[in-house]
């Protein structure tokens, strides 16, 4: 833990906040979210380090997507709080870019690729702001970065799954955020797209941004990410990949749902 600073006293006791948590891009404390009577997340506590590439990993129904939505401040919390760069998340939404699951929208919507990426400009444009030539250029650059510039005029329903995912990523890039939250960006995309997306995410990290992905492919976790959060309703473990990505932790996360032969194939360091 980093050196702590004493901020104030309350009930005669020092209130301590770790210096590193204070400005973390994403600090989640005691977060519990439930849909109905069963908690989707229970008392999750985690701090995402700045400039990291973090994977959120866990079995289906473990609350990974819920964790992202809570981090965006768009699901009701039963308890706990979420801070983004030291402020309540509700006040910091313009610092966050979110890439939802591809399947969560109706791709039959009447819009072109360009229209979708332009949506990322809304926080800058407001209700009636004109789109300046520089902003239009920025949008085209974002499409260029994901290799979709030539599809700008294409109807979104005509795209393949991988292309749809790239368009969503371009929209997030257009937001020019500091924290990128992606929900299963590699689900059902082709190998070329996976490579292109990871390259973009790496360059974001190199430019000082923080990237958090819900990820489901254990085989690529160690290659793509440097920080790991294992969840299954509870937080199982979090920390640098090298320390946390162990077969013991994976067993604890997945329980019987992950065959031990599968874990052996990952060639993890023995714990």
């Amino acid at each position: 833990m980093q050196p702590a600073i004493t901020l104030a006293t309350e009930y005669g006791k020092a209130v301590e906040i770790a210096a590193s948590d204070d400005q973390s891009p994403l600090a989640i404390r005691e977060l519990t979210v439930s849909y109905g009577e069963k908690p989707a997340l229970f008392s999750v506590d985690t701090v995402i380090p700045a400039q990291s590439m973090t994977a959120i990993v866990g079995p289906n129904g473990a609350g990974k997507s819920t964790l992202l939505k809570a981090a965006l401040g768009i699901v009701p919390r039963l308890s706990g709080n979420v801070q983004v760069f030291g402020e309540p998340v509700e006040e910091m939404q313009d610092k966050i870019a979110y890439v939802p699951q591809r399947a969560s929208v109706d791709w039959d919507f009447p819009a072109r690729v360009l229209d979708v990426v332009m949506m990322g400009l809304y926080p800058q444009l407001g209700l009636l702001g004109f789109i300046k030539p520089s902003q239009k250029k920025h949008v085209m650059e974002c499409l260029e970065r994901v290799g979709m510039a030539e599809f700008a005029e294409r109807q979104i329903g005509q795209l393949s799954g991988g292309q749809q995912q790239r368009v969503f990523l371009a929209r997030a890039l257009a937001q020019n955020a500091d924290l990128y939250l992606l929900d299963e960006p590699f689900a059902g995309v082709d190998a070329a797209t996976e490579k292109a997306i990871i390259a973009v995410l790496q360059s974001l990290k190199e430019n000082g941004r923080t990237v958090v992905c819900v990820h489901h492919d254990l085989a690529t976790v160690a290659d793509y990410f440097d920080h790991l959060l294992l969840v299954n309703i509870r937080k199982i473990a979090d920390g640098p990949i090298s320390e946390v990505f162990t077969s013991e932790n994976l067993q604890a996360t997945y329980g019987g749902r992950l065959a031990s032969t599968h874990i052996d194939q990952l060639k993890l360091p023995a714990s």
Partner: peptide, 28 residues
């Protein structure tokens, strides 16, 4: 049921915080 459930969650979380020697901030 929702209210009872919410109180259960807060009670459990609070107790765990006590056990871990952590401070509790949540008013509920």
């Amino acid at each position: 049921r929702h209210r009872r459930f919410q109180l259960l969650v807060h009670r459990r979380q609070g107790l765990l915080a006590i056990a871990h020697g952590e401070r509790i901030y949540d008013p509920l």
